[in-house]
């Protein structure tokens, strides 16, 4: 060892160090942690699996979608937030949408901008809940209210022809519908806020979460869905609200995080009720 050139000695020591530390930190540490965790917190360490009718139906802390095979909401269940994980709530493909806050112009070939997605979700959820799905910057037909302004005309770029533009004129310019495939890049982008006030559909209902597995919805969104679920299930609204309450976690110590309703647990307790 001492007779080897110093650079080689160093690398040999380095190799031994990597091996030794891998054994200590990469084998012993995780295995001991696993052992202790399994002994002390077995349920949680294994993913907080919940059962219905003796069968595992999911994890209490992983959201799932409550839609039928065609992707339509199953109305008797509270619906989760939109998800960008795979086809929705796929734990093997977790993801956020990663769309930017000013992603407001749909792609020329029909790719939806984040704004249009929000508007469309809002409209659909509004219809499902029987409230207005109107939001600022959204057209009544549920796309982003965005104009491309040219010197002599303007285009409601997200409203593909033959749709009627959400406004007829903009600053004296005639507003046209967007011709599919046409490149409007040269125009000045102007989102139009519109008249909509505070939306009836809550924020979390129209946005995808970070993980795509958000097990929660806001109490407001649960509140919005409660009448529908009660109606579908033929149970009293108060009962539903009670269950919402029971499945709501508040802020820990009163200040950490936000109040949240666990959708899977809520739906399970509805099924049990």
């Amino acid at each position: 060892m001492e007779r080897l050139p110093s650079w080689l000695r160093q690398h040999l020591a380095a190799l031994r160090a990597v091996v030794v530390l891998t054994v200590l930190l990469g084998v012993i540490y995780p295995l001991v942690t696993t052992g202790v965790a399994q002994a002390l917190f077995n349920g949680k360490a294994n993913g907080s699996i919940v059962q219905a009718g003796g069968k595992d139906v999911g994890s209490a802390i992983i959201g799932q979608k409550f839609t039928d095979k065609d992707g339509n909401p199953v109305k008797k269940y509270f619906q989760s937030r939109p998800s960008a994980a795979g086809d929705g709530y796929d734990p093997t493909s977790t993801s956020a949408s990663n769309l930017g806050p000013d992603d407001i112009v749909d792609g020329p070939n029909g790719g939806q901008s984040l704004l249009t997605q929000v508007c469309a979700r809002s409209k659909a959820i509004g219809e499902l809940a029987g409230v207005s799905g109107a939001r600022p910057y959204c057209t009544p037909d549920g796309v982003g209210a965005v104009l491309k302004v040219f010197p002599d005309h303007a285009v409601s770029v997200n409203q593909a022809c033959p749709a009627t533009p959400f406004v007829a004129t903009y600053e004296g310019l005639k507003v046209e519908c967007g011709k599919p495939g046409e490149d409007y890049a040269a125009g000045r982008t102007v989102p139009v806020r519109g008249e909509a006030g505070t939306p009836a559909v809550p924020a979390d209902a129209v946005t995808a979460s970070g993980s795509g597995l958000d097990p929660h919805i806001s109490p407001a969104y649960a509140e919005l869905q409660a009448p529908r679920v009660a109606r579908e299930r033929g149970i009293a609204l108060d009962k539903v609200k009670q269950l919402i309450e029971a499945n709501t976690t508040g802020r820990t110590f009163g200040f950490m995080g936000e109040p949240a309703v666990n959708v899977l647990e809520l739906n399970l307790s509805l099924d049990k009720a």
Partner: peptide
């Protein structure tokens, strides 16, 4: 260990397929 107490998982099991409430499948990692 504190994080496990909060709900983080710590196991060496593979993917656990479950059937969701609406009949879909979900692989719990």
């Amino acid at each position: 260990l504190v994080l496990v107490a909060g709900g983080l998982i710590q196991n060496l099991s593979g993917l656990h397929e479950v059937t969701t409430l609406t009949g879909g499948t979900q692989g719990i990692t």
